Simulated assay, not measured.
Amino acid sequence: MNIQNRNTDLRSESETARPLLIDPFARRIDYLRVSVTDRCDFRCVYCMSEDMAFLPKANVLSLEELDRLCSAFVARGVTKLRLTGGEPLVRRGIMTLVESLSRHLKSGALRELTLTTNGSQLTKYAAELKAHGVERINVSLDTLDADKFRAITRWGDFGKVMAGIDAAQAAGLHVKINAVALKGVNEDEIRPMVEWAHGRGMDITFIEVMPLGDVGEQRLDQYLPLSMVRARLAERLTLEDDAYRTGGPARYVRARETGGLIGFITPLTHNFCESCNRVRITCTGTLYMCLGQEDAADLRAPLRASESDEPLYEAIERAIARKPKGHDFVIDRRKQRPAVQRHMSVTGG
């Protein structure tokens, strides 16, 4: 049975309004990030080891199952849905899923359907994403130097990503750049990247490296506090706090000289957990209530156990009831192991 037929059969049950998801700290959970694959065509040094062992395809949820899972969360009040990976656009048939999920945009249940991508596949998919109701995407890009880009991504083609950004903007997608701040790697490019992004009408967000998974690198050697990044930017640009929010953890300033927004995601120097409205699902159907904690809930079993969504709703409710107040990320010389053993690509960026 294809996704569209399945949707028709289960729509009356899955899309009936249900009680909102509220965690133990009275935070409404209205933002779901879904990793559609753990696979990627890059091997970024802060995300994966070069010789990654990926999940067997049999362990990964089908597109139909991913649709049903996402729809269950939409029925419980999720209004923002982000597809992630790995690299989501390397998942075979991914546009079938995007097209199917777009029905929630048309109904008004979903306010935004978006994705985070490395940009490598955008020349192929940008126009189709726009046609299915995607208005905004995040492109992960940590440098404007082609040689440095190759060193960071190990396998990436800088020219292909630039062409992808061109294609996305030509299709009418609003592009935001996400850049991980890496000590001794791209810290000299922070201001040039801001000026480049703003010059093309794109906002940019800087992210502190997160202690997830063994990637064969010393985290402390990679770690560049964003307080330092902001201070350096303030030497040349007039930064004004801005109330703009996307529903995610970034806090924004506007550069008076360029008119563009600069976001900062600071899991280490400033814990953003007090307003967390997000949960994450892996491509195997594992629900993580917090990116920085190991506690998780298996949604694949109830998903496959019954044609009814009631067991799935019950599993989701039990999981949200134990969402923690915050994460335990820390990077220091005394704690050499990553705070969380799973790689970022498993949970989704």
Rank of each mutant, 00 (worst) to 15 (best):
Q4E: 15
T8E: 06
L10V: 12
E13P: 01
T16G: 04
P19D: 14
L20M: 05
P24G: 08
P24H: 14
T37N: 09
F42H: 15
K57I: 06
K57G: 07
V60H: 09
E65Y: 09
C70R: 07
C70I: 00
V74P: 00
P88A: 12
L89E: 06
L101T: 07
R103F: 02
H104V: 05
A109W: 00
A109I: 00
T114Q: 04
T114P: 01
A126Q: 09
A127Q: 14
K130F: 03
V139C: 00
T143Y: 11
A146I: 11
D147M: 12
K148C: 01
R154Y: 15
A163V: 01
A170Y: 03
A171K: 07
H174A: 14
V175A: 03
I177T: 00
I177Q: 03
N178T: 06
V180G: 05
V185R: 08
D188W: 04
R191A: 13
P192A: 15
G199V: 10
G201M: 08
M202W: 07
P211T: 04
L212Q: 08
G213H: 08
V215F: 12
Q222C: 05
Y223S: 03
V229G: 02
A231G: 01
G247I: 09
G260D: 03
G260M: 07
P267T: 10
T269N: 09
F272N: 03
S275L: 05
N277E: 10
V279E: 06
V279C: 10
C283F: 13
T284C: 05
T286I: 06
Y288T: 05
M289Y: 08
Q293F: 02
P302N: 06
A305F: 00
E310L: 14
I316K: 13
I316R: 12
E317G: 06
A319E: 07
K323M: 01
K335R: 15
R337E: 15
R337Q: 15
A339Y: 08
V340A: 03
M344F: 01
S345N: 14
